[in-house]
Write a protein that binds this DNA or RNA. Sequence first.
DNA 1: ATGAAAGCGCTAACAG
DNA 2: CTGTTAGCGCTTTCAT
Lengths: 337, 337
Amino acid sequence: MASNRISIKDVARRAKVSITTVSRVINKFPSVNPRNIKKVDQAIAELKYRPNISAQRLASGTNNTIGLVMPGYPGIFHSFFAIEIIRGVGHACESLRLDMVFHISDGNNPLNTSYLGGVIFADIIENAKQVQQAHDENVPCLVINNVVEDIDVSYIAINNFKGGKLAAEYLVSLGHRRIAVITGNLRTQAGFDRFDGFMKGIDELKVAISKELVFNGDYSRRSARQAAEYFFSMDDARRPTAVFAHSDDMALEVIAVAYEMGIRVPEDISVMGFDDNPQAIYGPVALTTIRQPVFEMAEKSVRVLHEMVTGKRDQKYRVALDPELVVRDSCLPVGAS
Amino acid sequence: MASNRISIKDVARRAKVSITTVSRVINKFPSVNPRNIKKVDQAIAELKYRPNISAQRLASGTNNTIGLVMPGYPGIFHSFFAIEIIRGVGHACESLRLDMVFHISDGNNPLNTSYLGGVIFADIIENAKQVQQAHDENVPCLVINNVVEDIDVSYIAINNFKGGKLAAEYLVSLGHRRIAVITGNLRTQAGFDRFDGFMKGIDELKVAISKELVFNGDYSRRSARQAAEYFFSMDDARRPTAVFAHSDDMALEVIAVAYEMGIRVPEDISVMGFDDNPQAIYGPVALTTIRQPVFEMAEKSVRVLHEMVTGKRDQKYRVALDPELVVRDSCLPVGAS
DNA sequence: ATGAAAGCGCTAACAG
DNA sequence: CTGTTAGCGCTTTCAT
């Protein structure tokens, strides 16, 4: 432990008051004589005193540490999603003066929640047990990016179904009929729902999509490249006129492959992404995409959790935020080149 | 605080032993009767008991929480560097059973280190004060990615100067004479050193580089795109035959722009990166780059810090790791197309 | 407005 | 191998 030898006693002695008074000024009780406040503040400064948080927590029985547990599967850290979550949660913790302890988990080791005021699960992938456990242990918890039905916990999710549908409707409205899709990891709820929403949307509009235009990706650029090479090597009659990638990153890769092969976007083919990653604005074409408010979701999750931890909220918080269509330059009506 | 009412006393009562014995089995003391271990473990399981970490810390005077403070400037979170740091630190904490509290900082608010066993600073950008403060407060701390001379702290850095030089030497050995460079943020030590090393390397080899071939970037893809457009619009006599981007991300963007403009890599122009980002292997050409072991550096930093925190290391740890050249397919001898 | 004293839940001598 | 007893540094009654 850091040499933090000076304790509240030293401060009290130096300020010639009781430790209780010192405690009071530390915790900004209103009932302290201004003179004493001054003396104590001065003593604190001179002694470079910093309260021992473990002691504070033990004595007060409070805990403003929250855990952020992220699925640890390979590649997640390179995704826009993960970064935005970390940023959003980190930012909110900073402003609420909460400590965030960060956990990468593959779901195998049980989570030690004993020193956590609450925990935020960034998606549930292979680690539903941990959520169940936290819930069983009565630790306030909240799940991000996942509509959870089987456990009675709070969540803030994105309506990915609607996002997929939005994409389908937009592309079809542009006259596209041969629309390829590069899915995310279908074993995740987000991946599945986007695909599901897209297909249902297509279906409702009486358009059919052949199986060969569905490429099972995994959010990686690598899988997008494979998909693009596959689609672009098709002969004219079968080749898609539009491709909907389930992440902006993948869409960007599709565009890159297109240019490498001398195919222009959007003139020769329309490309649509999902995320609204700012990176996607500065390429050769600004990307048309489905925006999902990840940062906001992450921030909100901290605020809600904090309310639960502090007892200001007793009931569960369960919402699915709507994504929205962001039209930029990478999609054109079919035949408009 | 999470309802964690059951305490060590309850366990002791239930197992019919003293709380000390319970404490001993919790902390895996070797000297406990197997029978008692069993009884205690059972009681713990039945009661769903989880020790109160604040109490443990207060009583033992230890603290296995470490802080990771990252500079909060825009864009950092989208960099390979930041992600690798988080991954590496997170991973090492996981295996050392340390808690990592994550801090995004613009360097303005002072850092509260009172509950931190130690602190890792991921680079120093605008926040040298915080490092100084932690050092003054006697909190074990370690700086990553920065050779720090003016404060007496430990650091693990990368020899970026050497990295830049390596790039210069390789490109020159390939016969290139008009070599463009897209720098990172020159106000960071890493950015400056890479550039410095590169220029010195060029210089030693008696090659001159005109000012117009130096583009002041900032690690963003956006700046790389600007740079590429600028370089590629030059007439044949002035146009560079190779470009060295100070990050793989930027190099990838250069390649993308090249293909968009019908310029082939490496046939028409050689491109070199810096990082060894796995993303850079799957593009149209596998990227030749300078590898810097960021993940390893991050992991190592946790281990070293942990030694400092636990008193197993008393002197400062100060190293600069060597980067290495990774030759793949994006650079060709000049005129070899 | 202030202080004395009793814990918070646990670990660490110290005996036995 | 086990239990008793002090604290760790702070907050919180309860008096004053």
